[in-house]
Nucleic acid binder design. Structure first.
Length: 577
RNA sequence: CGGGGUGUAGCGCAGUCUGGUAGCGCACCUGCCUUGGGCGCAGGUUGUCGCAGGUUCGAAUCCUGUCACCCCGACCA
């Protein structure tokens, strides 16, 4: 490819609306261009990266026995009504209608469609296992798209779906996909971790997310410093020694009310009483399934409630913290002063009280007194608390002990979720009636897995991990071009001929080369090459040619070597290996 | 959806408070010059000042409405 034909326009300054480094660099390097919020043009250079990643994915999918197909982006509502998701998916699903007023949506994910594809043909257990995948544009009307390709509304996703006659077969495919994802992200040159993840409203299922470690990541992941335990913080557990409180020691003082006028927060109360926040219990009220019931949750004062865990524990579709004024007005709750001691559930219309494990080991602590402007001292959970149950509903904290090896400590990292593998079970095949005849000749609902990779997000994550002050440093496997040949003097016959020759020979060897033949000053070409991040740069200029040499420079190591022009080609090939 | 902010040339911005000929840097075009890290000189092109109303002799500027985009939060396969 010759620069003049390549449609590459770089920017000297960061675009004003870009926040994270990958977004800035992709815009500046002329890889993407914004069309609307969360909707981008993939320019030729950016598309080449996408295609490279897709190529790696295709190879690894083939290795798992997955076969590629392509399903429509526009999906009739009936399919979504069949699975039930038309009702509860919410505004993230972009709905539209055609000229006949028939309802459609833009597919944000394709479980319904793929079940429909498979059920039309698959009749027998002999056809299973089956794994279908596609690489396709998805649309999710995100509340807040941001960070360029990292959280777009329109984005390219590889989504695979597998069908099985039993759990063992599903399990095999699940781990084959897990291994494939590991291979894919490794080949893309990423530093990543597979982590256990929350399965959302689908209780009991197994799922792993693949996170690229990066400070700009939107997720927090937790991993053990001694073993291989790693989990999304939504799911992560700590090694909890005490799950129910002991009786208080003999002579423990009785609870005592203390005036705490206007002091509602844990910080205010603990600093006023000169105690650590960990010596308090805080209590929160959650509305479950849009107000159909309410629960009280108490947790150690310095900890936060993990709403994903709470939702899972309750088996709820949604939970939310109700409006404070509403709780005061409708339920008479002294917000800021409620506590788990002598709590009148009926009065406050609370269906149940849950205590996090973090309060079980506490003794002699402070909590709200259930009346305005007062707290209680000398609370002993083993004596004073009567929750309906103790459970794990808190976030783990940095330094908690590992639940797997019991010896290591948990550390937190930021991660970019680039992929997820999921055991779906019969969530879609059941309602949509996808059955096969089993060995006994009986109709049996198939069990499914699904496996996604954000292709554009993977590209963005690669930049987050591989850049410097000058620009992108592409991992070789996903670089738009492996080599940039800079012809510094297009006016010089020898330089022009030699650079073109090298370019042509590299292409013959199936090595992607970009020839910068522009009539620009050398500095411009160097800056652009660094910004775009070609792994290898070959400089052909009159200065080197006087010594009969070209210069080969590696972007990542900054290593420079001069090669005699006669064997420049083999030196370049060797440098890339 | 709540809070905050921004819309002026392809990009980055000033001008808006205090109404009076539309500006700067980069990019782009022409010529000269230069050629190993975003050269220099000279000349030039590019705008419904987001959109719609209103006030005014006169609106980028004041008022009303509206749209888009960005940030924080809530939310999120």
């Amino acid at each position: 490819m010759v620069w003049k034909n390549a449609f590459i326009y770089t920017l000297r300054q960061d675009p004003a609306d870009a926040e994270v480094i990958s977004h800035k660099l992709m815009m500046r390097a002329g890889m993407i261009q914004k069309l609307a919020a969360g909707i981008y043009d993939y320019l030729p250079l950016g598309l080449r990266v996408i295609r490279k990643i897709e190529g790696i994915i295709r190879q690894e999918m083939a290795r798992c026995g997955a076969v590629e197909l392509l399903m429509p982006v526009v999906v009739p509502a009936e399919l979504w009504q069949e699975s039930g998701r038309w009702e509860y998916y919410g505004p993230e699903l972009l709905r539209l209608s055609d000229r006949k007023d028939a309802a459609f949506c833009l597919g944000p994910t394709h479980e319904e469609v793929v079940v429909d594809v498979a059920r039309k043909s698959v009749r027998s257990y002999r056809d299973l296992p089956l794994c279908l995948f596609q690489i396709q544009t998805k649309f999710r009307d995100e509340i807040r798209p941001r960070f360029g390709l990292m959280r777009g509304r329109e984005f390219i996703m590889k989504d695979a779906y597998s069908f099985h006659v039993n759990d063992q077969s599903l399990d095999e495919m699940y781990w084959a996909m897990h291994a494939a994802y590991t291979a894919i992200f490794k080949r893309c040159g990423l530093d990543f971790r597979p982590v256990e993840a929350d399965s959302g409203t689908i209780g009991g299922s197994v799922t792993h997310e693949f996170h690229v470690l990066a400070s700009s990541g939107e997720d927090t992941i937790v991993s053990c410093d001694a073993c291989d335990y790693a989990a999304n913080i939504e799911k992560a557990q700590a090694d909890i020694l005490v799950q129910s409180p002991a009786a208080p020691p003999a002579g423990a003082p009785a609870p005592q009310e203390v005036a705490t006028p206007g002091l509602k927060s844990i910080e205010e109360v603990s600093s006023f009483l000169k105690i650590a926040p960990a010596q308090t219990i805080k209590m929160l009220v959650y509305s479950v399934n849009h107000g159909s019931s309410m629960v009280g949750v108490c947790i150690r004062g310095d900890r936060a409630v993990n709403e994903a865990k709470l939702r899972g524990l309750l088996g709820a579709d949604s939970i939310a913290v109700p409006d404070e004024n509403e709780l005061r007005a409708k339920h008479g709750m002294p917000i800021g002063f409620i506590g788990p001691v002598n709590l009148d559930k009926t009065k406050y219309k609370l269906n149940s009280i849950i205590a996090d494990f973090s309060v079980a080991s506490l003794t002699d602590v402070v909590c709200g007194a259930n009346k305005e402007d007062a707290h209680l001292l000398h609370v002993f959970p083993g004596r004073d608390l009567m929750p309906d149950r103790y459970a794990d509903v808190g976030f783990v904290a940095e330094g908690d002990r590992c639940p797997r090896c019991h010896g290591g400590t948990l550390k937190q990292f930021r991660g970019i979720e680039v992929g997820q593998v999921f055991k779906l079970g019969t969530k879609y095949s059941g309602p949509m009636g996808m059955t096969v005849l089993n060995e006994q000749g009986n109709a049996q609902v198939v069990t499914m897995g699904c496996y996604g990779i954000g292709v554009g997000r993977t590209a963005a994550a690669a930049i987050e991990q591989n850049h410097d002050a000058d620009g992108i440093i592409w991992p070789a496997a996903i670089a738009p071009f492996a080599v940039a040949i800079l012809c510094l003097d297009p006016g010089n016959e020898e330089a022009r001929t030699l650079s073109l020759h090298l370019h042509n020979e590299l292409e013959k060897l199936n090595i992607d080369a970009l020839l910068d033949d522009r009539d620009e000053r050398p500095g411009v070409k160097f800056k652009d090459a660094d910004l775009i991040g070609f792994p290898c740069r070959v400089t052909v200029g009159s200065r080197g040619l006087k010594e009969g040499c070209v210069e080969i420079k590696m972007r990542k190591s900054k290593e420079v070597l001069k090669a005699p022009k006669e064997n420049a080609l083999e030196r370049i090939v060797a440098a890339l290996a």
